[in-house]
């Protein structure tokens, strides 16, 4: 048991260490120019030096992602419920949903910026737009995948539609909702960064662009690492919520 716990952390850490080690050997061995690829140690130094800057910009991006993702959950789940509970709604809006979804978000981003400005709101909207789709699709799939026998059981007791939804369909769909949310949360980060790339005054994506334009490659790399940490933190948040809301799935 204890050994298992150690290896649970040991192997992932070793994986990261291995990649950093190979990176270091490559830069030192081939004498790579730091403008092309800085040494990992240099990136770490910059991260420590510029920690305040990274944290402030990171906080801005983090807020854009969290709000965009939260909005995607708040609208995506009820929309999926509506689509699965009514054939008419589904026939009317599902093709529309797919149609709008097939427009690349990067192409829509400039328009969103025109509508919502250079600030926080436009990034939130883009993050929302990319996170929304997987949540709707996975929630709808989950709601449709309720075991028929459980529905039969409820119907045999003359359960109301609301009872069936709250006591059976929704909890049965939770694993699907969470797998959609895990995809959505990483997409939300991409969405926010796309928004910052198109035009922004703050955020890690903005910092990355500025650093790149000043050929400050180590700072660009530092922002990249910060973005990846941000993505992992958000993902871990969803996993933690899953553990709390679905304790029964732990045994698997």
């Amino acid at each position: 048991m204890k050994l298992e716990n150690i290896s649970k952390y040991f192997y992932p850490v070793m994986g990261v260490v291995l990649v950093i080690f190979v990176w270091h050997i490559y830069v030192v061995g081939f004498d790579i120019n730091p403008v092309v690829l800085p040494k990992p140690l240099l990136v770490l130094n910059i991260m420590i030096e510029e920690r305040v800057l990274l944290l402030t910009e990171g906080w801005a991006t983090f807020k854009e992602c969290v709000y965009g993702f939260a909005l995607a959950l708040a609208l995506g789940i009820p929309i999926a419920v509506a689509l699965t509970s009514s054939k008419t709604l589904n026939l009317t809006f599902y093709p529309l949903l797919i149609g709008t979804q097939s427009v690349p978000k990067v192409a829509v981003a400039p328009i969103i910026l025109v509508w919502f400005g250079l600030g926080f709101e436009s990034k939130l909207v883009i993050a929302f737009l990319v996170a929304f789709f997987p949540i709707v699709i996975d929630t709808a799939t989950g709601l449709r995948a309720t075991p028929q026998e459980l529905l039969d059981l409820a119907v045999s007791l003359r359960a109301s539609r609301l009872q069936i939804f709250l006591k059976i369909q929704f909890p049965a769909a939770l694993p699907f909702i969470f797998s959609g949310a895990k995809v959505a949360v990483t997409l939300a980060v991409i969405g926010a960064v796309i928004g910052e790339f198109i035009g922004a005054t703050e955020g890690l994506g903005n910092l990355l662009l500025v650093a790149n334009s000043q050929v400050d490659t180590p700072l660009a790399w530092a922002s990249l690492v910060a973005l990846s940490v941000l993505g992992m933190v958000m993902f871990a948040g969803v996993v933690a919520a899953e553990r709390i809301l679905m304790p029964w799935a732990e045994d698997h």
Binding site: P147, E149, L150, P171, A172, L174, M246, W248, A249
Partner: peptide, 8 residues
């Protein structure tokens, strides 16, 4: 046919 219990 199956126990059909709710895992949650």
């Amino acid at each position: 046919q199956t126990p059909n219990l709710m895992p949650w």
